[in-house]
């Protein structure tokens, strides 16, 4: 029994740290979902686009992936703003389904663009510190998983302060709580949507770097991240930062513990998060903390 518990410790730590990555991805999705009640189906692919951007910056300029974010975050922000303004806002006026299909179109375009530019081969952001690990007592902790956790915490706190302290942040919170009232108070919903999507894209750029340091990626590895981050939102609930954080941890743990308890089976590691999302969705379709 004691051996079992000791063996359980590494996947536990790894799962919690990995959760940070899912938190960053889910925060972007959650922001758009909160204000528009629309799931951006392209979010996973946009995260992968972020990974490729860092990969390209490393290749051309030879800079660290985190340094590439200095350019990447503003670029993604602007890109998101215009995508929302010119594509999604227009379709959103027609119907939610049309906007969903537009997001799907964006997902196809981003995926095929990555495939054209960077070929379908698997890549990773190879850095000197990526594969290092250090020991804490009897545990060894990989640097990349630790970076995921720190990144997740940092983005979460930054976003939380932004939503609480700035006018724009308050407008976004207001629009996601009750849009008709927010509109009557002089908040322009289309502008709020555009900024929400732009911030979601900036989150995707950060998530892309963390993701690229943690896993191998190819143009088609986006959809699993979409599903997992959707699961995080469902478990964590909208608008609750702590909930999102816990949701991320739960998904990280499902993956690492599932793999550990099944004796390292890849099938379980891949299937476990999907099953969890599906079961939660079918038991409580509007989410555990859903309104």
């Amino acid at each position: 029994m004691e051996d079992f518990l000791i063996e359980l410790a590494p996947p536990l730590i790894r799962g919690i740290l990995l959760g940070g990555l899912y938190v960053v991805i889910a925060l972007g999705l959650s922001l758009v979902f909160g204000v528009m009640k629309l799931i951006n189906v392209a979010h996973g692919d946009l995260v992968i686009l972020g990974s490729y951007f860092a990969y390209a910056a490393m290749g051309w300029l030879g800079i660290d992936p985190f340094l590439s974010l200095v350019v990447g975050v503003p670029l993604f922000f602007a890109f998101g703003f215009f995508v929302q303004k010119f594509i999604i806002n227009r379709t959103f006026r027609i119907s939610l389904d049309a906007a969903l299909i537009a997001c799907f179109g964006i997902s196809v375009v981003v995926q095929s663009l990555c495939q054209v530019i960077w070929t379908p081969f698997s890549r990773s952001l190879t850095t000197p510190y990526q594969l290092r690990s250090f020991a804490v007592g009897e545990l060894t902790i990989s640097v990349r998983y630790l970076l995921d956790f720190i990144g997740g915490l940092a983005v979460m706190i930054a976003l939380r302060e932004f939503l609480r302290r700035t006018y724009l942040g308050k407008a976004i919170s207001a629009a996601s709580q009750n849009e008709p009232v927010a509109e009557r108070m002089g908040i322009n919903p289309n502008r709020v949507y555009s900024f929400a999507f732009a911030i979601a894209m900036a989150c995707a750029a950060v998530a892309g770097v963390l993701q690229g340091l943690t896993f191998y990626f190819s143009p088609v590895s986006g959809p699993p991240f979409l599903i997992i981050s959707f699961g995080v939102i469902i478990i964590g609930g909208l608008g609750s930062m702590a909930g999102t954080f816990i949701g991320g941890m739960i998904f990280g743990l499902t993956q690492t513990l599932g793999a550990h308890l099944s004796g390292g089976s890849m099938m379980v590691q891949m299937l476990a998060p999907y099953l969890l999302v599906f079961v939660v969705l079918s038991v409580r379709p509007q989410g555990i903390f859903g309104r």
Binding site: V41, L100, F230, Y274, L281, Q286
Partner: peptide, 20 residues
């Protein structure tokens, strides 16, 4: 939207299953 995502999970899960 929940229905759309719920159905999107299924083929991904089946793909993972048939892969192993």
């Amino acid at each position: 939207i929940y229905f759309a995502i719920g159905t999107l999970i299924l083929p991904e899960a089946l793909k993972a299953w048939f892969n192993y």
